[in-house]
Structure formats: structure tokens, C-alpha cells
Design a protein around this nucleic acid. Structure first.
Lengths: 238, 238
DNA sequence: TCAAAAGTGTTCTACTTACACCCATGC
DNA sequence: GCATGGGTGTAAGTAGAACACTTTTGA
């Protein structure tokens, strides 16, 4: 081993690179997270974020989509997918050095993970996972709170909330997204004014919603607008 | 090559993992970025973010600190360092598949990169680099605008601006940070009120500043507070 | 005494909030 | 009719912008 400008070969690692995806959706008014049973037999009994190794000619985003498709049965090119951050502690995976690029994915309806063949994937209430009620493999116990907090804070200053609803949607649908993710109740009247005054957040669509059982006035329908960032922002109460 | 539950070996990549650091500082009222000349001889004439391969037993943050130390002569454990995002397009490095975890680093005074031996590192005005006035190697032309925008937007809702100034500092120092990074002029009176009302942003220190040549009233000195996030936020004008 | 910068006070505006009230539908 | 949810109006409270004004220094 020589010293100097040349770095000795043994110091430089060639790591495995993986992606792990925190898929968030809203089920029955609760922010929920998809977990799978890990492949490794020594991790039986625990749960994990769906993750895959990145292939030779594959982009990171591509690997994330594939992880959702292969492990969760979610083929969702329309789902919002964005990088969370990368976790690379040397000992985070007991099977060897694996650097993992974590993603968060947001989808409207709960994809039917159960319907996929031989997949043991299920949804958990995000808050329960974050508070440690579910045993998580690897360092996923550290990833999940980051993912949830990212989603919560991005609802404030981006139009990300619309990724949780199918088009067309009512403003009540959108309000339920905020209420579920933030765990608060919002004034419907003021919420409406904020949303329509935030330029490019939503655009009016044709037709009206049909009231549920018990009645109620039909609501206008909306679609996603073109804005990424919201001006002004939808600030969390507190 | 077998099909089935086992993934064929050739599909799974073992990539090189690197870190690239966008070191930002404020020189003469201008947000500035440190660039180095790349090692690779075929990239002579272009500039690059200081980057290093991640070593076997090294954390990602550790590799980022090492890149600053070895390539820029900046040994700054006190500098703010945070992940930006990870860039992993299959063809982003012409020498082979390299997944790069990009960081942003923020330091108060311009570290004397020139003083380090045999280092060709210099600072450029961040805006000029972002607008393409400097030829950048690899995909660093895509990383730099992300880094600048991250810094700009994080000044709004976090206490990150204090990472650009030495302690103790005056509120005018802090205001110059915002003005330099955002490229705007701020009202000193309203700025003061916002900063002191944001709980935990700054705490008063002992003593007063000495006015510069030409006079002026001495200013109170402050140190960094404990808050990470600002309530209320310092919103960018526009 | 003048210029320059720090710090305080004041006014005007804009936005948020809370809640009253009307509208349209199911039962 | 009555309950339920959609949508509009409005007044009080709060926060930001603009700027006048005082304070404290150097020259």
C-alpha cells in the first residue's frame, strides 16, 4: 500500500446501492404506510420498506418504481415519487455495506397490495410505525419518521396534497388530505379561500360531486393545477 | 441466467459511491461556490465540485468532510453540512457507474483554499456558475442550481443563515447574509423585529460591535440560538 | 456638525380566523 | 321539514411593509 496522491485500493469501497420507498396514502382518514416482509430469513417477524438493489443501467427513480411494482404490486407511473435522502451508515445492513437512497411515494387510493401474488405487503397507520409500534428491519425505523415529516411539511408549501386524491376531486377531499396528514381539523370556509387564492394549486373542472347518503349540497369539482410551490403557503396551525 | 425469484447476478450493479460537496460562503456580499479542477486528465479545463469516493468503513457525512479537507483544505467540523440529494443517472460519469451523494456545506468566512498545497481550488460567484458561465464536469451543472436553491429556500424557514456568520455577530451581519443569498435589499428595522421575534433564532451576547470607518452606532452582538426551524418564517419578498 | 448605522415607534395594509348565514341536496 | 355538507359574507385580531424619528458613533 503506497501513500501519496494515489489512494490505496483497499480504502475505496464499491458498495451495493439500493432504493427504499416509503409509500404513503390515506386510508379511512389515516395517513398510512406500506410495509413488506423482508427477504432475508434472519429478519423474519419484522417489517421493512419495499426496497430493491439498483441495476446496472437503471436510474435511481427507475429502481424506486420497480421496487413498488415488484414488491408492492403498485404500477404507478402517475404516483408522486421523490427522493427523501440517502442512508449510508457503514453498519446499517447486517449483510454488508449497502447505501440506500430512500424515496417517498404518494398515491391517491390505497393500491391493492394484497391482490398481488405471494406478496406479504400491508398498510400500517403511519403514526404507529413512527412511534415504534411495528418492528422495522435495518435502519428503516429512522427513515420512516423522516418520510412522514417530509410529507407533512411539503403539504405546506407545495401542491403535493393533490397527489393523495384522484381527479376530479372536491375541496372537501383535499381538505381531508390535510386533516389526515396533519392530524388537525380545518375550517372548511377558510380552507376553500386559501386553496382557490393560491394560484395554480387547483383548477375548476366540469360537473359537480354527488352528495353522500344523508344529503348535502353538491360540490364543485377540481383538478390539479400547474403550480409546484404554493403562494401563499398553506401553513400548519399551531 | 435463471429467471424466477432469484435476480440474475448480472442485473445487479455494485456501483462506486461518491460524495460531492457544494461549499457555499459569502465573499464581499456575493454568494460564492468553491470549485476544484477534476483529477481526470480528460476533464482538464473544466471545474467540478470537490468530491471523493466513499471508503469502506466511512459514513457519507464523513466522506463529505474528507472531501472538503483533502480537496479544499477546509477542515471545518463546525461548518453546516447537509445532504442535498443523490444523483445516479447511469451515464453521469464517463468513467463508469458512480452514484453521487451531493451535499451542501455552509461556512462563515471564505476558507483559504488557496493556501493549501497543490490545490487548484477557487471560489466563483454562485449565480455565474448557475447560469453556465463556468464549464462544469460530470453532471455538476445540474447539481449547482439545486444547491443554490436549497440554500435560498432554507434561509426562509430554518435558522441556517447563522451558519454563514462567525459568532458573535450583529443583526446587520445576519441581514447581509439574507441580502447576499437572496439578492435583495431588506428593511433593517423590520428585519430586526422579525429576527428577535422568531423564538430561538438568536440570543443576545455580551458587548457591542465597533462601528466601521465613517461611524455609526455600535450594534448589539448575538449568537446562534437553539431553534432549527423558524416560527414565524422569514419569507422571501416577491 | 455631518454622515452613517442602530434601534424604536407609528401607520397603513393585507391576511388569517372565527363564525354567521344562505344554498342545494337526501331522507 | 330537517339534517348535512357546500359556499359566501363579515368583523375582529394579527402580522408585514414603509418610513419617520431618535440614538450613538467616526471623521
Amino acid at each position: 500500500v503506497t501513500e501519496g496522491t494515489t489512494v490505496s485500493r483497499s480504502q475505496v469501497s464499491t458498495c451495493a446501492v439500493a432504493v427504499d420507498v416509503a409509500l404513503l396514502t390515506i386510508r379511512e382518514g389515516t395517513l398510512s404506510l406500506l410495509l413488506v416482509e423482508p427477504d432475508a430469513p434472519d429478519l423474519a417477524g419484522s417489517w421493512a420498506l419495499p426496497g430493491r438493489r439498483v441495476r446496472d443501467a437503471e436510474s435511481l427513480d427507475g429502481a424506486a418504481h420497480r421496487a413498488l411494482r415488484e414488491l408492492a404490486g403498485v404500477d404507478a407511473p402517475e404516483a408522486h415519487l421523490e427522493q427523501l435522502r440517502t442512508y449510508g451508515a457503514p453498519n446499517r445492513d447486517p449483510h454488508g455495506r449497502v447505501v440506500s437512497v430512500a424515496y417517498i411515494a404518494l398515491t391517491p387510493h390505497p393500491p391493492e397490495a394484497e391482490s398481488s401474488p405471494a406478496m406479504s405487503a400491508r398498510f400500517f397507520a403511519a403514526d404507529e410505525v413512527a412511534r415504534g409500534a411495528v418492528e422495522l428491519a435495518y435502519d428503516h425505523g429512522g427513515i420512516v419518521p423522516d418520510a412522514i415529516e417530509r410529507a407533512r411539511s411539503k403539504l405546506e408549501y407545495t401542491a403535493l396534497a393533490t397527489a393523495f386524491v384522484d381527479e376530479p376531486f372536491t375541496l372537501a377531499d383535499l381538505r381531508h388530505v390535510y386533516e389526515s396528514v396533519w392530524g388537525v381539523e380545518l375550517d372548511a370556509a377558510n380552507f376553500r379561500r386559501k386553496v382557490v387564492s393560491a394560484e395554480g394549486f387547483v383548477v375548476e373542472a366540469e360537473g359537480m360531486s354527488r352528495p353522500g347518503p344523508g344529503g348535502g349540497r353538491p360540490a364543485k369539482l377540481y383538478r390539479r393545477g400547474t403550480a409546484e410551490r404554493l403562494h401563499p403557503a398553506m401553513l400548519r396551525p399551531s
